[in-house]
Computed example of a mutant assay.
Amino acid sequence: MSTALKLATWNVNSLTVRLPHVLDWLNSQRPDVLCLQETKQEDSKFPYAALAEAGFNAVHNGQKTYNGVAIISPHPIAQVQFDIPGFVDAQKRIVAATIGGIRVVSAYVVNGQSVDSDKYQYKLQWLAALQDWLAAELKQHDRLAVLGDYNIAPDDTDCHDPAAWEGQVLVSPPEREAFQRLLDLGFHDSFRLFNKEAGQFSWWDYRMAAFRRNMGMRIDHILVSEALRSHCLDCIIDKAPRKLERPSDHTPVMLTLGI
């Protein structure tokens, strides 16, 4: 008899602001793994005590004001890895760990700002380094899940207005090609295993009543290795937290596995 395991990702856009939302969501959903991005906290500020009181362990790779990633779980967290090995980077965008026999990566991919900026070139370099590292990780861990804010809408169906976004970051051909190269390593976009239709998003701008009008993008993803694909039971976007007062501009994505 299999056990259902729930893996989730959520860009919280400041854990200092959103901690009550995260604690409430953890209590109601009881995920086995929650990966956070944009905690925007130094490690010394991370709420280990509040999470422990709620029954969760955590690891965090953070910095002041920007970036920051975490993995939260009620289960033991082992074999922790911070950052992409061999890639010199002051920005805290990666933490990985093994939980219940599954290798989990929480990733906050570079936004890129605009296609003519240095930050865009940094994004492509970062994605290339991520690809090389994940190729090596797959050789060590056949059960591998990479959860996070990828800052890439892989297809026009993942964008509310492809024509308006054409040529911009999040949808540019080099970014989408980099995403496809991750899939070519042997990963699967778990949401698309179950949901094929357009108009399903995980991020909405705070401006122009974008959430109410569903003017969003699907840029938060859970990629799973081939060994996990057959265990995938469902993957959903939980819009409820986006409706709260002072929400993150992202909302959780959650995958259920039968292990």
Score class of each variant (00 low, 15 high):
V80Y: 05
S14N: 07
E175L: 08
D118S: 15
P76W: 10
V33L: 09
P20I: 03
L7K: 07
L182A: 03
L34H: 08
V69C: 14
V88H: 12
L23R: 06
P173F: 03
D116E: 10
A70V: 00
Y150R: 08
P47F: 07
R93Y: 09
A50G: 03
L144R: 07
Q125P: 07
N151S: 09
E226R: 02
D43I: 04
K239E: 08
V253F: 00
I222L: 08
D24P: 01
A145P: 07
L170T: 15
R207Y: 11
P241Y: 05
Y48W: 03
V105D: 13
A96Q: 13
Q131H: 14
H75V: 08
Y206L: 08
F56H: 07
L51M: 09
P74V: 06
W25I: 02
P74G: 04
P74E: 09
A153C: 06
R103K: 13
W25G: 00
D116A: 11
H250C: 08
Q180W: 01
A49E: 15
P31V: 05
L7D: 11
P31F: 04
R192D: 01
V80C: 04
G101R: 13
V224Y: 06
S248C: 01
F194L: 06
P47S: 04
T157D: 12
V253K: 00
D155C: 14
I219W: 10
D83K: 02
V253T: 06
A49V: 15
N67T: 10
H221P: 04
F179W: 05
Y108N: 00
